[in-house]
């Protein structure tokens, strides 16, 4: 408590009263509870996926610390069945989708970042007004069908190719770049495309990284579009598989991996699928969160 008291009050301005001990401990308790409530499920899901049947029964469900960790559950889901295929599908959609989305968003944001471009105002209004009202589920579904995208991976990418929010973030960043720099490049004879590639892009690595990660996470998590547009189970992505095995409780075929052996418990397999879906997000999150805690996006959100 002493240590945290010092830390909690390290930069107190002179006019501020000394914090009371009960105030500090209440704050500490509240924050500690929130942090635990967020982290506990993650820890417990990972731990359960590594547990044996005996341990799960002994704990009556979720395990916090497996004493006898085993990778059997992962062996089952990576044996080449539905989960492996869904993982490949998800990775494919997320990578192609992210590249396509980032390219389209950067191009559009740069194209509209300069005042006075002929028709720029009009295009901008078209994009911004789309945020105010959506067409609805039925018309969107019918459109995807009419375009022949039903049951293709393109149906998971094209309908959400550009997010108006990401577009605004990039456009306001591009507009904030020092105009002297761009003008001097212009004087030196650089065309608009050259300016984008040689000056704007190298200066915009951070916001483009944030936007890319936003898109990647979005594609990875996309459940609604996959549910609407993917009929063929061969094309199913991870969220659909997750729903089938974990939420609807369909038992997973064990395959050849455990013939004659004791198969891992269903709960461990289910949690292993959850972990597989979680890992990519947990991997990119450290790169993402730096930007938020430093407030890189707050300017864009405010404006």
């Amino acid at each position: 408590m002493k240590g945290s008291t010092v830390a909690l009050t390290s930069k107190r301005p002179a006019w501020m009263e000394r914090p009371t001990w009960y105030g500090l401990s209440l704050k500490g308790l509240a924050l500690g509870f929130i942090v635990l409530a967020v982290l506990y499920p993650f820890v417990s899901v990972v731990a359960t996926s590594l547990s044996t049947d005996r341990e799960i029964v002994a704990n009556g469900g979720l395990v916090i610390w497996p004493t006898d960790p085993t990778l059997d559950a992962y062996r089952v889901i990576f044996a080449g069945g539905d989960v492996t295929r869904a993982l490949v599908n998800s990775l494919f959609v997320a990578s192609i989708g992210t590249v396509a989305s980032v390219c389209a968003t950067v191009m559009m944001a740069y194209g509209l970042s300069r005042r006075g471009v002929t028709g720029g105002r009009f295009i901008l209004m078209i994009a911004l007004f789309s945020m105010l009202f959506g067409a609805g589920i039925i018309p969107n579904f019918l459109l995807v069908k009419e375009l022949g995208l039903y049951n293709t991976f393109a149906a998971l990418i094209l309908p959400g190719l550009i997010s108006a929010f990401n577009f605004i973030v990039l456009r306001s960043f591009f507009m904030g770049l020092p105009s002297e720099l761009l003008d001097s490049a212009k004087v030196d004879g650089a065309g608009d495309l050259r300016i984008l590639l040689r000056i704007v892009l190298p200066l915009s690595k951070a916001p483009i990284a944030v936007v890319s990660l936003f898109y990647a996470v979005g594609y990875w998590n996309a459940f609604f579009n996959a549910l609407l547009y993917l009929d063929d189970t061969e094309k199913w992505t991870l969220p659909l598989i997750l729903r089938l095995y974990v939420l609807q409780g369909q038992p997973m075929a064990q395959g050849e991996a455990f013939a004659g052996d004791v198969p891992p418990p269903q709960l461990a397999i289910q949690m292993a699928v959850v972990v597989v879906a979680l890992v990519p997000i947990l991997l990119v999150y450290p790169f993402l969160q730096r930007f938020f805690t430093k407030g890189v996006l707050s300017g864009a959100i405010k404006g």
Partner: peptide
């Protein structure tokens, strides 16, 4: 160049939102 760069975005919004 600027218009051409913005064109795919415009097309996207027209086709998938309007």
């Amino acid at each position: 160049v600027m218009i051409l760069l913005a064109a795919p975005g415009l097309l996207y919004f027209l086709v998938f939102h309007y």
